[in-house]
Amino acid sequence: MLKLNHIDKYYNAGTVNEMCLFEDFSLSIDDGQFVSVVGSNGSGKTSMLNIICGSIPVDRGTIQINGQDITQMPEYRRQRRIGRVYQNPAMGTCPNMTILENMSMADHKGKPFNLLPGTNRQRIDFYRESLKSLGLGLEDKLHVKVGVLSGGQRQAMALLMSTMTPIEFLILDEHTAALDPKTAEVIMELTDKIVKEKHLTTIMVTHNLRYAVEYGDRLLMMHQGRAVLDKSGEEKAGLRIEDLLEQFNAISIECGN
Protein backbone atom coordinates (compact mmCIF):
# COMPACT_ATOMS: atom_id res chain seq x y z
CA MET A 1 0.00 0.00 0.00
CA LEU A 2 1.42 3.32 -1.09
CA LYS A 3 -0.08 6.46 0.40
CA LEU A 4 0.45 10.15 -0.26
CA ASN A 5 -1.15 12.10 2.58
CA HIS A 6 -2.09 15.79 2.25
CA ILE A 7 0.88 16.70 0.09
CA ASP A 8 1.72 20.37 -0.53
CA LYS A 9 4.30 21.19 -3.15
CA TYR A 10 5.31 24.68 -4.26
CA TYR A 11 7.85 25.66 -6.85
CA ASN A 12 9.88 28.85 -6.31
CA ALA A 13 8.36 29.27 -2.87
CA GLY A 14 8.61 32.77 -1.48
CA THR A 15 9.26 34.49 -4.81
CA VAL A 16 6.95 36.31 -7.21
CA ASN A 17 7.10 33.22 -9.41
CA GLU A 18 5.71 31.03 -6.67
CA MET A 19 3.62 28.30 -8.19
CA CYS A 20 1.50 25.93 -6.23
CA LEU A 21 1.43 22.48 -7.80
CA PHE A 22 -0.12 20.29 -5.12
CA GLU A 23 -2.31 21.53 -2.32
CA ASP A 24 -3.62 18.90 0.07
CA PHE A 25 -3.12 16.15 -2.50
CA SER A 26 -3.82 12.64 -1.28
CA LEU A 27 -3.67 9.35 -3.09
CA SER A 28 -3.54 5.74 -2.07
CA ILE A 29 -2.59 2.82 -4.25
CA ASP A 30 -3.27 -0.78 -3.28
CA ASP A 31 -0.73 -3.55 -3.61
CA GLY A 32 -0.69 -5.11 -7.04
CA GLN A 33 -2.59 -2.26 -8.67
CA PHE A 34 -1.54 -1.07 -12.14
CA VAL A 35 -2.37 2.63 -12.33
CA SER A 36 -2.26 4.55 -15.59
CA VAL A 37 -1.91 8.30 -15.19
CA VAL A 38 -2.83 10.75 -17.93
CA GLY A 39 -3.09 14.52 -17.93
CA SER A 40 -2.03 17.71 -19.65
CA ASN A 41 1.45 19.18 -19.44
CA GLY A 42 2.21 20.68 -16.06
CA SER A 43 -0.60 18.81 -14.37
CA GLY A 44 1.77 17.21 -11.87
CA LYS A 45 2.13 13.68 -13.25
CA THR A 46 5.90 13.53 -13.26
CA SER A 47 6.13 15.61 -10.08
CA MET A 48 3.99 12.99 -8.39
CA LEU A 49 6.41 10.26 -9.46
CA ASN A 50 9.35 12.38 -8.33
CA ILE A 51 7.71 12.88 -4.93
CA ILE A 52 7.08 9.15 -4.55
CA CYS A 53 10.69 8.32 -5.52
CA GLY A 54 12.16 11.11 -3.42
CA SER A 55 13.75 13.00 -6.32
CA ILE A 56 12.10 16.20 -5.05
CA PRO A 57 11.11 17.08 -1.47
CA VAL A 58 7.57 17.94 -0.42
CA ASP A 59 6.60 21.09 1.48
CA ARG A 60 4.01 19.37 3.65
CA GLY A 61 2.42 15.97 4.04
CA THR A 62 3.73 12.45 4.30
CA ILE A 63 4.49 9.51 2.04
CA GLN A 64 3.91 6.03 3.39
CA ILE A 65 4.73 2.57 2.11
CA ASN A 66 2.93 -0.23 3.98
CA GLY A 67 2.38 2.10 6.89
CA GLN A 68 6.04 3.14 7.13
CA ASP A 69 6.69 6.87 6.78
CA ILE A 70 9.34 7.38 4.08
CA THR A 71 8.98 11.15 3.65
CA GLN A 72 12.49 11.82 4.95
CA MET A 73 14.14 8.77 3.41
CA PRO A 74 16.79 9.71 0.79
CA GLU A 75 16.04 8.88 -2.83
CA TYR A 76 18.66 6.16 -3.18
CA ARG A 77 17.32 4.22 -0.18
CA ARG A 78 13.76 4.28 -1.51
CA GLN A 79 14.99 2.87 -4.81
CA ARG A 80 15.72 -0.39 -3.02
CA ARG A 81 12.11 -1.43 -3.52
CA ILE A 82 11.31 0.76 -6.50
CA GLY A 83 12.18 0.15 -10.14
CA ARG A 84 11.95 3.22 -12.34
CA VAL A 85 12.03 3.61 -16.10
CA TYR A 86 12.41 7.10 -17.51
CA GLN A 87 11.15 8.74 -20.67
CA ASN A 88 14.71 9.19 -21.88
CA PRO A 89 16.09 5.76 -22.82
CA ALA A 90 19.60 6.95 -21.88
CA MET A 91 18.67 7.27 -18.20
CA GLY A 92 18.29 3.59 -17.45
CA THR A 93 21.63 2.27 -18.68
CA CYS A 94 25.33 3.16 -18.73
CA PRO A 95 26.35 3.95 -22.32
CA ASN A 96 30.09 3.34 -21.87
CA MET A 97 29.66 -0.05 -20.27
CA THR A 98 28.82 -3.27 -22.05
CA ILE A 99 25.44 -4.99 -22.01
CA LEU A 100 26.87 -7.68 -19.76
CA GLU A 101 28.29 -5.13 -17.31
CA ASN A 102 24.98 -3.28 -17.19
CA MET A 103 23.07 -6.49 -16.56
CA SER A 104 25.52 -7.51 -13.83
CA MET A 105 25.10 -4.18 -12.05
CA ALA A 106 21.31 -4.44 -12.17
CA ASP A 107 21.57 -7.97 -10.83
CA HIS A 108 23.53 -6.75 -7.81
CA LYS A 109 20.98 -4.15 -6.77
CA GLY A 110 20.30 -4.52 -3.09
CA LYS A 111 23.56 -6.36 -2.49
CA PRO A 112 26.83 -4.76 -1.37
CA PHE A 113 28.98 -3.40 -4.21
CA ASN A 114 32.24 -4.67 -2.78
CA LEU A 115 35.49 -6.03 -4.22
CA LEU A 116 34.01 -9.25 -5.57
CA PRO A 117 34.18 -9.66 -9.35
CA GLY A 118 31.72 -7.30 -11.04
CA THR A 119 30.34 -10.00 -13.30
CA ASN A 120 29.36 -13.37 -11.92
CA ARG A 121 30.12 -15.80 -14.74
CA GLN A 122 27.57 -18.30 -13.51
CA ARG A 123 24.84 -15.75 -14.11
CA ILE A 124 25.75 -15.09 -17.76
CA ASP A 125 23.39 -17.77 -19.04
CA PHE A 126 20.57 -16.25 -17.04
CA TYR A 127 21.30 -12.77 -18.50
CA ARG A 128 21.35 -14.27 -21.95
CA GLU A 129 17.97 -15.93 -21.38
CA SER A 130 16.40 -12.71 -20.06
CA LEU A 131 17.74 -10.74 -23.01
CA LYS A 132 16.44 -13.39 -25.37
CA SER A 133 12.93 -12.88 -24.00
CA LEU A 134 13.08 -9.32 -25.39
CA GLY A 135 13.40 -10.74 -28.89
CA LEU A 136 15.78 -7.96 -29.96
CA GLY A 137 18.86 -10.08 -30.55
CA LEU A 138 20.70 -8.49 -27.62
CA GLU A 139 21.72 -11.89 -26.24
CA ASP A 140 24.42 -12.13 -28.92
CA LYS A 141 25.85 -8.69 -28.16
CA LEU A 142 26.82 -9.13 -24.52
CA HIS A 143 30.18 -7.39 -24.99
CA VAL A 144 28.83 -4.47 -27.00
CA LYS A 145 28.66 -1.08 -25.32
CA VAL A 146 25.11 0.00 -24.59
CA GLY A 147 25.81 3.43 -26.11
CA VAL A 148 25.64 2.01 -29.64
CA LEU A 149 22.19 0.47 -29.17
CA SER A 150 19.03 2.16 -30.43
CA GLY A 151 16.63 3.95 -28.09
CA GLY A 152 14.16 1.08 -28.20
CA GLN A 153 16.81 -1.49 -27.40
CA ARG A 154 18.08 0.62 -24.53
CA GLN A 155 14.61 1.16 -23.16
CA ALA A 156 13.91 -2.57 -23.29
CA MET A 157 17.14 -3.13 -21.37
CA ALA A 158 16.26 -0.41 -18.89
CA LEU A 159 12.93 -2.11 -18.25
CA LEU A 160 14.59 -5.48 -17.86
CA MET A 161 17.28 -4.06 -15.54
CA SER A 162 14.86 -2.17 -13.31
CA THR A 163 12.74 -5.27 -12.75
CA MET A 164 15.54 -7.83 -12.42
CA THR A 165 15.77 -7.88 -8.64
CA PRO A 166 12.79 -8.25 -6.31
CA ILE A 167 11.02 -4.87 -6.14
CA GLU A 168 7.59 -3.82 -4.95
CA PHE A 169 6.89 -0.81 -7.14
CA LEU A 170 7.44 -0.12 -10.78
CA ILE A 171 7.40 3.54 -11.78
CA LEU A 172 7.08 4.21 -15.49
CA ASP A 173 7.56 7.83 -16.54
CA GLU A 174 6.27 8.07 -20.14
CA HIS A 175 8.59 5.22 -20.91
CA THR A 176 7.30 4.71 -24.45
CA ALA A 177 7.15 8.40 -25.41
CA ALA A 178 10.55 8.56 -27.10
CA LEU A 179 10.05 5.42 -29.17
CA ASP A 180 8.56 4.79 -32.59
CA PRO A 181 5.01 3.34 -32.57
CA LYS A 182 6.09 -0.23 -33.26
CA THR A 183 8.84 -0.31 -30.64
CA ALA A 184 6.54 1.44 -28.19
CA GLU A 185 4.03 -1.36 -28.72
CA VAL A 186 6.69 -4.01 -28.07
CA ILE A 187 7.87 -2.27 -24.90
CA MET A 188 4.30 -1.83 -23.68
CA GLU A 189 3.50 -5.52 -24.14
CA LEU A 190 6.74 -6.42 -22.38
CA THR A 191 5.85 -4.10 -19.51
CA ASP A 192 2.47 -5.74 -19.11
CA LYS A 193 4.06 -9.19 -19.14
CA ILE A 194 6.64 -8.30 -16.49
CA VAL A 195 4.06 -6.57 -14.28
CA LYS A 196 1.79 -9.61 -14.40
CA GLU A 197 4.60 -12.13 -13.87
CA LYS A 198 6.06 -10.32 -10.89
CA HIS A 199 2.80 -8.90 -9.44
CA LEU A 200 4.27 -5.41 -9.24
CA THR A 201 2.40 -2.37 -8.01
CA THR A 202 2.78 -0.11 -11.02
CA ILE A 203 2.30 3.57 -11.75
CA MET A 204 2.54 4.44 -15.43
CA VAL A 205 2.44 8.01 -16.67
CA THR A 206 1.58 8.18 -20.35
CA HIS A 207 0.35 10.57 -23.02
CA ASN A 208 -0.97 7.66 -25.02
CA LEU A 209 -4.66 7.45 -24.14
CA ARG A 210 -4.99 4.06 -25.79
CA TYR A 211 -2.33 2.56 -23.53
CA ALA A 212 -4.00 4.16 -20.54
CA VAL A 213 -7.31 2.55 -21.46
CA GLU A 214 -5.93 -0.82 -22.56
CA TYR A 215 -3.47 -1.48 -19.78
CA GLY A 216 -3.79 -1.39 -16.06
CA ASP A 217 -6.73 -1.68 -13.71
CA ARG A 218 -7.02 1.92 -12.56
CA LEU A 219 -6.90 5.22 -14.41
CA LEU A 220 -6.11 8.68 -13.04
CA MET A 221 -6.50 11.89 -14.96
CA MET A 222 -4.53 14.73 -13.42
CA HIS A 223 -5.21 18.41 -13.86
CA GLN A 224 -3.65 21.33 -11.96
CA GLY A 225 -2.41 19.10 -9.17
CA ARG A 226 -5.65 17.22 -8.67
CA ALA A 227 -6.98 13.89 -9.84
CA VAL A 228 -10.04 14.95 -11.84
CA LEU A 229 -10.84 11.40 -12.84
CA ASP A 230 -10.15 8.23 -10.86
CA LYS A 231 -11.68 5.03 -12.18
CA SER A 232 -10.84 1.50 -11.19
CA GLY A 233 -12.21 -2.00 -11.58
CA GLU A 234 -15.42 -2.29 -13.62
CA GLU A 235 -15.63 1.44 -14.26
CA LYS A 236 -12.10 1.46 -15.68
CA ALA A 237 -12.77 -1.60 -17.83
CA GLY A 238 -15.74 0.19 -19.38
CA LEU A 239 -13.78 3.34 -20.26
CA ARG A 240 -13.30 4.23 -23.90
CA ILE A 241 -10.74 6.57 -25.46
CA GLU A 242 -13.61 8.86 -26.52
CA ASP A 243 -14.65 9.34 -22.89
CA LEU A 244 -11.13 10.34 -21.97
CA LEU A 245 -10.84 12.72 -24.91
CA GLU A 246 -14.08 14.37 -23.93
CA GLN A 247 -12.84 14.85 -20.39
CA PHE A 248 -9.54 16.18 -21.73
CA ASN A 249 -11.31 18.73 -23.90
CA ALA A 250 -13.43 19.83 -20.98
CA ILE A 251 -10.28 20.51 -18.98
CA SER A 252 -8.70 22.44 -21.83
CA ILE A 253 -11.80 24.59 -22.28
CA GLU A 254 -11.72 25.39 -18.57
CA CYS A 255 -8.20 26.65 -19.09
CA GLY A 256 -9.42 28.78 -21.97
CA ASN A 257 -7.46 27.34 -24.85
Binding site: E75, Y76, R77, Q79, R80, G83, R84, Y86, A90, M91, G92, T93, C94, P95, N96, M97, E101, S104, M105, A106, H108, K109, G110, K111, P112, F113, N114, L115, L116, P117, G118, S162
Partner: peptide, 20 residues
Protein backbone atom coordinates in the same frame (compact mmCIF):
# COMPACT_ATOMS: atom_id res chain seq x y z
CA UNK B 1 31.40 -4.53 -8.26
CA UNK B 2 32.65 -1.39 -6.58
CA UNK B 3 34.65 -0.55 -9.71
CA UNK B 4 31.58 -1.01 -11.89
CA UNK B 5 29.74 1.47 -9.70
CA UNK B 6 32.59 3.97 -10.02
CA UNK B 7 32.41 3.74 -13.80
CA UNK B 8 28.63 3.99 -13.69
CA UNK B 9 28.59 7.18 -11.61
CA UNK B 10 30.57 9.08 -14.26
CA UNK B 11 28.53 7.55 -17.03
CA UNK B 12 25.01 7.92 -15.69
CA UNK B 13 24.46 9.10 -12.12
CA UNK B 14 20.74 8.38 -12.31
CA UNK B 15 21.41 4.68 -12.74
CA UNK B 16 23.51 4.57 -9.58
CA UNK B 17 20.58 6.03 -7.64
CA UNK B 18 18.29 3.51 -9.33
CA UNK B 19 20.59 0.77 -8.04
CA UNK B 20 19.82 2.05 -4.54
Amino acid sequence: RSGYLLRAVGDNEVLVTSLA
